[in-house]
Amino acid sequence: AQQCNGIYIWKIENFSGLQRAQEEERPVVIHSPGFYTGKPGYKLCLRLHIQLPNAQRCANFISLFVHTMQGEYDSHLPWPFQGTIRLSILDQSEGPERQNHEEVMEAKPELLAFQRPTIHRNPKGFGYVTFIHLQTLKQRTFIKDDTLLVRCEVQTRLDLNS
């Protein structure tokens, strides 16, 4: 999936099916398709967990991570990846009081998660174990037509230099 200025929207449909699996204590881990931060740009993907009700410290939380992937521009890009990543779960309500749930994180170039991937997807990701609690999802229209929208907005050091 290509980008419009470094923003990617991941549509997660049949979200109630994932919640049912979690309630039945079945692990829920899904990955987004790979997407590029630009042309040229880094190839990334997202990983989402719905933590089980009996998980230590993070029970019933949605975890959200970013992984680097092998991309077609890798040999022309500076490594490690440096930049700012904003992760959001979008409030799908109409009206002015719409409020996304979001976190902004700075890439840490010393971490393996931001080194150039040597296999299809870097096994190391970076993000939040406790991104949002399932109860918080109910407080706004984060789920509409049984679909959750996760947005990833990437501002790479590359963009800043160019």
């Binding site: 881990v29 990983r47 975890s63 991570f65 992984h67 976190e103 994180m105 840490k108 971490l111 393996l112 998660a113 096994p123 190391k124 990701g125 970076f126 993000g127 939040y128 174990v129 406790t130 991104f131």
Partner: peptide, 12 residues
Amino acid sequence: FPPVPTEDEYMD
């Protein structure tokens, strides 16, 4: 307090 991002390993 806002959550702190961490590195997390996952392999299929």
